[in-house]
Design a protein around this nucleic acid. Structure first.
Lengths: 219, 219
DNA sequence: ACAGAGATTAGACCCTGTTCTACTTTGCGG
DNA sequence: CCGCAAAGTAGAACAGGGTCTAATCTCTGT
């Protein structure tokens, strides 16, 4: 798997870069995507992966199977996604896109920043719960990876946006970012507990309310 | 790896139970440990595992190698620790024990609950940082597992204890537990970011101070 | 239409976690 | 001391992630 690791070495931003969640442009590593069929290939792969993961979790999402379902060779799959993790990250990216557009369609309406944040988180929770296996797979893998445009960061930004109305990442203070980020990581943690059967939906909501009320008290 | 998964099924508390972090008693699964040499074997295994992981991370801690270094057969290793994860959990258990005794020796002295909590967290951070590879391995694996006496929970309890002086898990309110727990998960998250090179020690401290101040404001 | 570069493919291959098998040791009640 | 069940051992075997190779395809520019 080889993740940069260690306090010492900074992320090597070399020509090859690490995994990325980016959605529109070229495939993970494919240098110059001659677009068209390549984008489609990529999409087919991600779809196949999501489909497999959505029933059976990560373990069901085997690289060979994904490749087969997507109608590409294993080698090709690995050209697009250098590791299983990268694939997972891509799948997650789509999920977040979904959440973001959902929020754009129907923005949270609670009166407090904390309320809006919890609203968004719970909405995301419900979305993920529709496919517990997938959710579990994604969350776990994400925590392990979180390279480049990580899950938590995207959620944090989203939270920031809905918490302080009109607040953007650029306008927020360092500390506000920290707080939003922390809320996101608490959420991820709670979600994992839920998937493990240690929390109910209602418990998560309650816990998030408590934590959010404090973290975002003055947003 | 087979982790219970899914919102539906509750953890099966059957006769075989899941992985456990417990330190003194019998080996992970070995039914009736005839103690003596068995405890020693177990210790040798955990030590070998820790040694390997401490330089090279999880990947260096290969089951075959651990078995060899510990002087036991692969099969035996698997009898004691049904999966690599279980081994990791055991190694972590030792680390936490260390932290706990360190805290007993020299309790945090900050005047505020939040201050004491941060103190403990940073002390744990320094401890883990001594062996970044090990820390990374442990944290990642733990997040993935956290079965039975999880890392986060132990930290949460510890935090609770130092935050409210003399406060114990039994005396704490649900919400206080939630908050301590959340602080622990934020810490874990920050630690992972640090290991990934995205945070410096000072940043972590600052961020924890901010978050802790809010989460534990009235402890 | 044609050559060369890059993309794709099928499939062998390696590595490591985990399982399984056949056999030997060990510890203990009778 | 015997017998036996549990525990241990060596090592083969399996599974799935990831790599590599030798073709074959597909563009793209000329």
């Amino acid at each position: 798997m080889r993740i940069p690791h260690a306090v010492i070495e900074a992320a090597t931003p070399g020509p090859e870069g690490a995994a990325s969640v980016e959605n529109q442009p070229t495939a993970a590593t494919a240098p110059g995507a001659r677009t068209r069929s390549q984008l489609q290939r990529r999409k087919r792969i991600v779809q196949a992966a999501a489909a497999l993961a959505s029933r059976g979790g990560v373990e069901a999402m085997q690289m060979r199977t994904v490749a087969e379902r997507a109608g590409v060779a294993l080698g090709t799959l690995y050209r697009y996604f250098p590791s299983k993790m990268d694939l997972v990250v891509a799948v997650v990216g789509e999920e977040i896109d979904l959440l973001e557009s959902s929020i754009q369609r129907r923005p949270p309406s609670a009166p407090t920043a904390s309320g809006r944040a919890v609203d968004v988180l719970m909405r995301a929770t419900r979305g993920l719960m529709r496919e517990p296996e997938l959710a579990d797979a994604l969350l776990r893998s994400l925590i392990m990876t979180e390279v480049e445009t990580p899950f938590g960061d995207r959620m944090a930004k989203l939270l920031l946006r809905v918490a302080g109305e009109g607040l953007t990442v650029e306008l927020a203070t360092e500390d506000q970012l920290t707080l939003a980020n922390s809320l996101a990581s608490v959420w991820v943690h709670e979600l994992l507990e839920m998937l493990r059967g240690l929390r109910t939906y209602d418990q998560i909501q309650h816990r998030l309310e408590i934590v959010s009320a404090r973290l975002l008290m003055d947003f």
